[in-house]
Every structure is written in C-alpha cells, then in structure tokens.
Simulated assay, not measured.
Amino acid sequence: MQVKDKIVIITGAGSGIGKATAIHFAKYGATVVVSDINLEKAKEVAAEIVTNGGKSLPIKANVAKFEEVENLIKQTVVDFGKLDVLVNNAGIGPSFLRTHESTLRDWNRVIAVNQTGVYYGMKVALAQFLEQGYGNIVNIASLAGLKASPNNISYSASKFAVVGMTKSAAMEYATKNIRVNAVCPGYTESALLNQLLSAKPEMDAILKSVIPMKRYGKAAEIAEAVVWLASDNTKFITGQTITLDGGTSL
C-alpha cells in the first residue's frame, strides 16, 4: 500500500473499524491522527501505534459539532504541515424500531453524527485540499446505504446520504486532484453489531443465514479496503462505493 509518510485523520478511531484502520495505516508507514469523542480510547490506540513503531497523535473531536471538526483538521495541519487523507468513520447506530415507532431524538442523534458529521469533515477537509492542491477522502457508509434496511430509518437515511455525498463531491473535485470514495461494510464485528445482538440475540443466526460466507466481516478486512482506496495504488478511482459484505448484497 502506497501510503508511507501520508498524514491521515480517522474519526471514531477509538474502537472497531476506526481502530483497525488506524493500525493498518500506521503499519504501512502513514502518520495517523486518531480522533474520537472518547479521548482516552484515542490515546490508547495512538499509544499502541507508537509502541509498534508507528507515528500517531490522539485528538478529541465530536463530529456532530462543526467547531470541533474544524479544530481537528486545523490542528493536524498546524502540527504536520498538511493533510493527505480524511477517513470519515465516526458513526452511531439506531434504536431498531419501525419507522412510525422511531423517535425524533433517535432521528436527530443519528443524522447529526452519521450524516452531518461526514458533511462537516468533507467541507473542512476539501477546503484544505484545494489550498494544498490534492487530497483524498474515504467515507465509511454501509450496506444499509445501498439496500433496504427495515427497522432502521435514521441509520439507513444517514448511510444513503453518505453514498450520495461521496458521489457528488467526487464529481465536483475530480479535476482538482482530489478523490472521494466510500466503503460499504455489511455485517461486521463491531460495537454496532454487538448492540444489535445484545438487544436481539436471535438475530445472530438470522443474519448469518443471509450472508453467503456464513460469517461476519472483520474490522481488519474493512480497514484493508480503506487503506487501499486512500493509497496511491488507486489514483484513477473516485466516486466509488466498495461493498464488503461476504456476498450479502447478492
């Protein structure tokens, strides 16, 4: 993977796919800004990267607050002189209710993080990329942003939006040496999946029955795709959604 010496910000990097992605970037020689709303988790991931010979800096940021996203990117540029890659990974899950039973609080909370938070990151990063003449964004969407996902209205809406924003921005900045892509994980071992299975243990067998590979994805497998899209190995790829779902969408 050609990401050596790149400066990379990953939001929601304190656990799950974000943590795995941070570790993978560092393994291939990138400097990783580990951002999370939980600073202690961010520090733990950054420390693990440094212990293993990598370069990392933890920064706290709530992606639902524009000023914190702005500060995250500004601080990164001040400290390292540039920003090569932004991975918009921070996200939260829904309450698994049918649409008419869903709450306004759930809708507003999920949209604020999963959709508006991605917009904030893209807006600020793109301005920086235009100034420096290049850049790369990888958004973490979901299979729920490509196909129907019942009992999931807020999460589904937010992930469909991420796919749309990815494609729109990719077209806008294709001539500016700026690429924007997304990955769409299926059911992956993560805090969100654990949340679902804790609430409804019977879903474990049901979910695996619809996955042709009969297993969940691993965070490290998603991370490999993210690093690949962010690397110089994929210079002619933009506006794409890479689906990693063990065949579920088939």
Rank of each mutant, 00 (worst) to 15 (best):
M1V: 08
M1H: 09
I9Q: 01
A13H: 00
I17D: 02
T21E: 06
H24T: 13
K27A: 12
T31N: 10
V34C: 04
V34R: 04
D36A: 02
N38S: 11
L39R: 11
E40S: 14
A42N: 09
A42D: 00
K43A: 07
A47D: 12
I49D: 04
I49W: 08
G54I: 10
K55M: 15
S56I: 05
P58W: 06
K60V: 00
N62F: 11
E68S: 00
K74G: 12
F80G: 01
A90I: 07
A90D: 12
G91L: 12
G93N: 14
G93A: 05
R98P: 15
E101V: 04
T103D: 08
R105S: 15
D106V: 13
A112H: 01
T116A: 01
V118P: 09
G121N: 01
G133A: 14
V138G: 10
N139F: 09
S142V: 02
A144E: 08
K147I: 14
A148I: 03
P150D: 04
S154V: 04
S158A: 13
K167Y: 00
K167R: 03
A170F: 01
Y173E: 07
T175R: 15
R179F: 06
V183W: 06
G186A: 06
Y187C: 04
T188V: 09
E189C: 08
A205L: 13
I206H: 01
L207S: 07
L207K: 07
S209Y: 03
P212C: 13
M213S: 13
M213G: 05
R215V: 06
V226K: 00
I242D: 00
G246N: 11
G246V: 04
T248N: 15
T248L: 15
S249G: 11
S249T: 02
